[in-house]
Design a protein around this nucleic acid. Structure first.
Lengths: 360, 360
DNA sequence: CCTAGGATTGAGACCGGACTCACATCGATT
DNA sequence: AATCGATGTGAGTCCGGTCTCAATCCTAGG
């Protein structure tokens, strides 16, 4: 309308007040819908606001209410559909309650995570949802919690940190699916994860991620219950990029005592593992059985369709957001963290190993 | 450390100044690293800040600098890996330049988009990246642009809106891939998209999305160049959820004059189409050829691997963020929008139709 | 007709930094 | 020794809202 050739200045309450011929305080009350305002004034102010196309400055508002109506979300990698779905659950829920979401990626790097948390805190978000890269280095999270700012953990637990956590019972599902493989005749069961560690896996090694640690424990329990021993040499960590995953896969399958089944720690890893298997001209499940965490839609399209461990990712996102918002709004928290259940979906990628090695 | 049993009050410059025995102005200068400050004062202030664990309030800072170091990103659906990847490109780039990202989902709904833009503007983001749900209803975007706030469009163009746009040349790739299908002997080529319209597709119908519209134009040109006519009855829009996509697929393949090739408008649609084809016990490419937009990793794992149209999604996210930040920082924009190129990746899902219908 | 008490209203403080301005300080110049 | 420009420094304003507080207006009860 008017000359916006020059530098644009936002319309403020003061402008509206002037136009409506009332004091700034009255205009603010009418606009902010608080305090006592006569119908006459309210009308004039609202009309003036409309006319001037007034939009409140949320920053200013946040500054003296102390509420930003924004929650910070820190995840390892949104590119990973697992987090994509969870994020969707979070944003949907947040929007429904009038909250916005600031998203930060950490690339599963704790230093980046510490930084992300700091930035979010500086921006005075009302609360945080973090999928911690490490279940051990949680000092920064502890500080958030101690400062009194609402915090909810997603996907991974942080032992010793008394914070509401939304995660699935990994030990249980890992035990069940390992048992399923053992019952199918497998003894050489491999597990591949991106988890970064200093050296190769050794029995009893402390693992930085509760998720991986719990899965290891579940596997171990399954083996122990079957009077077998968990083959430590088949637990492979540090599977960074696609190439290293393929390399690990080849190695697992071409050794003298090859793995007869492979469990991929997530969908991204699974992708590369399956690709490597195809490249070796081996077939699933005849030559090697395959199982992976995350039930992505495409797992139904491969030949054979893949047996997977489905996690209610979207619902977990929703639950995390709901729990956080409940905390922000000062409502009571349920006493215990509700445990989400993963489910083994048996499709076609698991079968008995080619030559059943009687006993072990 | 100290009693945070009571309500937590943030440490401010004033607190630091008091502790360092200097004026608030001096403390602010030392902390903000501007103006002239003696070494002595700086040291004392920094020490006091450290001691008190001072953290600047970014809200307050933003309020009088006018810069929030935050960019708003509005996409249709992060759950869709296409946007997941693009978002990753954006956030990576933003972080590198010290910007944060507020993400809002619109579910491809223009009303939600209008709202999202308003919210972000109210939060005084420094700029916006929007993947507009509609290339027609762009009034809200025009207002953003006119208000002088930096804006970059992603993926879809908005004709008549002179805004930097990062998108691929859809008409071209659509033409090329359609020609490829025609040359393979196909005449009955179907195209399935989620685009919502009032009724079924009719020739010359205006399409709300530049992306879809351009693809239609490309197909049409390919047909015209081959002296053929684009089969309007095979352009299917309004493919909302998985179930409706499957229904459309079945219908396309079970009619008297079935489609011999199907092009899916994106990876999510492709998933359901392939599933429906498998459920009909038809095989690709013997019974029907298949082509889809978006080159997701899993397309290499299906049998056969899928022929796809790869788009440099991550790079586009990076480009969008770079362009936006350049605008924010007041640097010159390159004169023209760089056009990104999609690429037809021929894998195994396209072959000659079963019975070549000589001519048409 | 007078007055108590609730409804309105305006002035101004405040949130937490950034920044302007006037006033020192001080070594260097002439 | 007087002058000058380059720092240093503190008081105070501003950003754009929210909110307190005291003053004013009205209206009904006595």
């Amino acid at each position: 309308m008017n000359s916006d050739a020059s530098r644009r200045r936002d319309v403020t309450v003061a402008d509206v007040a002037r136009a409506a011929q009332v004091s700034k305080a009255q205009a603010a009350r009418a606009l902010g819908n608080y305090g006592a305002v006569s119908d006459d004034v309210r009308e004039r102010v609202l009309a003036a606001a409309e006319e001037l196309d007034y939009r409140p400055n949320e920053l200013a508002r946040s500054m003296n209410t102390g509420k930003s109506h924004t929650i910070g979300v820190v995840v390892g990698d949104i590119e990973n559909p697992h987090f994509g779905l969870a994020t969707r659950g979070i944003t949907d829920t947040a929007k429904r309650s009038g909250f916005n979401v600031i998203l930060i990626n950490t690339d599963e790097d704790t230093a980046a995570e510490i930084d992300a948390v700091r930035v979010l805190l500086d921006k005075r978000v009302d609360g945080l949802i973090v999928a911690p890269a490490s279940s051990v280095e949680t000092h920064h999270l502890r500080r958030v919690h101690e400062s009194g700012r609402p915090l909810v953990l997603l996907d991974r637990k942080a032992p010793g940190l008394d914070v509401h956590t939304v995660a699935v019972d990994m030990e249980g599902i890992s035990h069940d699916s390992t048992t399923y493989l053992i019952n199918s005749g497998h003894r050489r069961i491999a597990f591949i994860s991106t988890l970064r560690t200093d050296g190769p896996y050794r029995d009893g090694m402390p693992l930085d991620s509760s998720q991986i640690s719990d899965r290891r424990d579940g596997m171990k329990r399954a083996f122990v219950e079957a009077d077998l021993e968990l083959p430590d040499d088949l637990i492979r960590l540090n599977a960074g990029d696609a190439e290293s995953i393929k390399k690990i896969t080849r190695e697992l399958l071409q050794r003298p005592d090859p793995a007869t089944a492979i469990i991929a720690s997530d969908g991204l890893i699974g992708l590369s593992v399956v690709e490597a298997i195809q490249e070796l001209d081996l077939s699933i499940p005849q030559d090697v059985s395959f199982l992976m965490y995350d039930d992505f839609a495409w797992t139904r399209l491969t030949t054979p369709p893949l047996t997977v461990i489905a996690q209610p990712v979207y619902d977990m996102g929703v639950a995390a957001a709901e729990a956080l918002i409940r905390q922000i709004e000062g409502r009571k928290m349920p006493a215990a963290d509700p445990e989400f259940m993963a489910e083994l979906i048996r499709r076609g990628s698991v079968a008995a190993p080619k030559a059943i090695d009687v006993d072990h």
